[in-house]
Simulated scan of single mutants.
Amino acid sequence: MRATKRTPAGDALSDLVLDLFRLNSRMLAAGDRLVAGLGLTSARWQILGAITAAGRPQPVAWLARDLGANRQNVQRIVNDLHKDGFVAFEANPHHRRAQLVVLTDKGKRAFEAAMRLQAPWINHLSDGLSIKDMETVHRVVTALRTKLEGSDEPDEQA
């Protein structure tokens, strides 16, 4: 069986993806350290952010969709946040079993505090980086995400 060779663009993207995996791990660890004193982790902070960004109460499945995450993982984190008083559940008038997730006052305060910590941290992290380069990376990542959305498996090209 003959192995298909990667194109130069495929090689470049493969290198980028490996670096993105490494960056993701470092960003999550740094985020965990940043918000640990608030009783949060990067994952919890991300869920609180998704709830805030939604603008209205949503069920876990919708939050997971908005995050591009696995519903079961989001449910586990939401359950932990609920146990610790950061979120509450409300009845969903459109679906009896899919409760709506809402921030409690404690959750709102924690998210706001996390964002106050994030601003100087992200400003420092961006020092010396070109805005144009960051915008280019953002466009590339967005284009890749768009190509991957809706696909559970990599495309197989013969």
Rank of each mutant, 00 (worst) to 15 (best):
R109N: 13
Q157F: 12
S14M: 11
D80V: 14
G39N: 10
K108S: 08
N79S: 14
P93A: 02
L63D: 12
R6C: 06
G39Y: 02
N24W: 02
A30E: 14
L100C: 06
T136A: 12
V140S: 01
L100G: 03
G39M: 06
V102D: 06
A143Q: 01
D15C: 02
V140A: 14
N123R: 14
L125V: 01
K108I: 09
A119V: 15
G49M: 09
L148Y: 12
E156F: 09
T146P: 00
R44H: 13
G49S: 06
R139C: 02
E112I: 04
K147W: 00
A119W: 08
R97N: 11
T7G: 03
P154R: 02
E153V: 07
F111V: 03
R71Q: 08
A3S: 11
T104K: 03
H82M: 13
A30V: 05
G39T: 08
A119H: 13
E112A: 04
I131H: 05
I131Q: 09
T7E: 05
R145F: 00
H124Y: 05
P59V: 10
V137A: 13
G39E: 01
Q58V: 15
I122K: 09
P59A: 11
L38C: 03
A43W: 05
L144N: 05
G85M: 07
D152A: 14
V101Y: 08
V137I: 11
H124G: 09
G55F: 10
I77C: 03
A113N: 06
P93Y: 04
G128P: 00
N73S: 10
K5Y: 03
R44P: 08
G68K: 07
K83N: 13
G85F: 01
L18V: 07
T7P: 00
P120I: 07
L23W: 01
V102Q: 13
D11K: 07
A30C: 06
A69S: 10
G31Q: 12
T4E: 14
H124A: 13
S25V: 05
A3I: 11
L103H: 10
D32F: 00
A91Y: 02
L28D: 11
W45Y: 08
M115N: 15
R139I: 01
G128K: 07
G49A: 13
A43H: 15
V17H: 00
D152E: 09
I77M: 06
T146H: 00
Q75N: 14
D84S: 14
P154I: 03
R76H: 08
L34E: 11
Q72G: 02
L63G: 07
E90K: 08
N92S: 12
E156W: 14
R116H: 04
T7Q: 01
L63S: 08
S42P: 02
D155K: 12
H94E: 11
P57R: 06
H94S: 07
L16C: 04
L103T: 04
G55A: 08
E112Q: 09
R56V: 12
W121F: 15
D84H: 12
Q99D: 14
I77R: 10
L144V: 01
I51S: 10
V87M: 09
N123Q: 11
L67H: 00
R26A: 15
R56I: 03
A54G: 10
M115V: 12
L38K: 03
L34S: 12
G37E: 07
R26D: 13
T136L: 08
F21N: 01
G68H: 06
P93D: 09
Q99A: 15
P8V: 09
